[in-house]
């Protein structure tokens, strides 16, 4: 299938804020959030992701159960 041509350029945040009816104050708050560095720990959590984190927990639980059975 042929790709769908998007003829418009990517809007600026200001253009989109106007289009959505979002105030400039809120956009400034969002800009400030996006420009603040994130702590390294938070980055690690994101990289792991919820699925990977729950998979790790499941593995730990399974190991503990196997250990308990052996004992």
């Amino acid at each position: 299938m042929e790709p769908y041509e998007i003829t418009n350029p990517v809007p600026t945040p200001e253009e989109m804020a106007d289009f959505l009816g979002v105030s400039r104050e809120r956009l400034i708050a969002i800009r400030s959030i996006m420009s603040t560095p994130t702590p390294a720990g938070a980055r690690h959590t994101v990289r792991l992701g919820r699925a990977a984190a729950s998979a790790k927990i499941a593995v730990k639980k399974a190991k503990a159960r196997a250990k308990a059975r052996k004992a």
Binding site: V10, P11, T12, P13, M16, A17, L20, V22, R26, L27, I30, R31, I33, M34
Partner: peptide, 10 residues
Amino acid sequence: RDILLAALVE
């Protein structure tokens, strides 16, 4: 709306 704007800021 905030996520949309955050994506554009990024």
